[in-house]
């Protein structure tokens, strides 16, 4: 009896300890496990927040079948870095929407974080962020993609992203007409 009781208590303590754990374990499509700060995961990802609140987090690794290990490693890295970074100053409480930046610019470390990614890793990360409902990370990655397009001609953009021009000559002429505003050149 006493032994059992002791065991029960130990079980209880273990459960409490798990509920109190400040990390969650995530499993990539290829079976690799990653630990991430629970607080950061819940704050940055609406999907993970829902899973944590709904108790559907698996201690042996929550399966994220859509995300490869490289992308998941970047997601986890981003969350952990975010948990350690100092939150930036509160936004200006102005009621005027004009002339204020519509997007919050990425912070220096976020810029560096996406700059080091390869072309494919960047897109894997965009897709992972989209799947996990990570608005801030989507902002940061989409900002990076837009930077890759800025100041480039359509031909240059096609080259950077490997986009195949499948318009016929007539179609292209038509769409250029529609987009006359973009193609006026003195």
């Amino acid at each position: 009896m006493e032994v059992d009781k002791g065991k029960g208590e130990a079980e209880e303590t273990r459960k409490v300890a798990e509920a109190d754990r400040d990390t969650v374990t995530l499993k990539s499509s290829d079976g690799k496990l990653f630990e991430v700060s629970k607080e950061a995961a819940a704050r940055l990802s609406t999907v993970l927040a829902g899973m944590i609140a709904g108790g559907s987090i698996d201690d042996n690794g929550t399966d994220l079948k859509q995300i490869g290990s490289e992308a998941l490693e970047n997601v986890v890295d981003y969350c952990n870095k975010h948990a350690n970074s100092i939150p930036s100053a509160a936004l200006i409480s102005s009621s005027i929407s004009f002339n204020t930046a519509p997007f919050k610019e990425p912070e220096e470390w976020e810029r560096k974080f996406v700059d080091r990614l390869s072309h494919d890793a960047l897109f894997d990360l965009v897709e992972a962020a989209n799947f996990l409902g990570m608005e801030r990370l989507l902002d940061v990655t989409c900002h990076k993609i837009s930077e890759m397009m800025k100041g480039k001609s359509p031909d240059q953009i096609r080259e950077v992203f490997n986009i195949k021009n499948d318009y016929t000559k007539e179609e292209l002429e038509e769409i250029r007409q529609e987009l006359a505003w973009a193609f006026y050149d003195d």
Binding site: G151, P154, R158, I163, K164, N165, Y167, A182
Partner: peptide, 10 residues
């Protein structure tokens, strides 16, 4: 630039 992306592909 945003309008210009219309010519990239269909």
């Amino acid at each position: 630039s945003a309008l210009g992306t219309g010519v990239l592909s269909r």
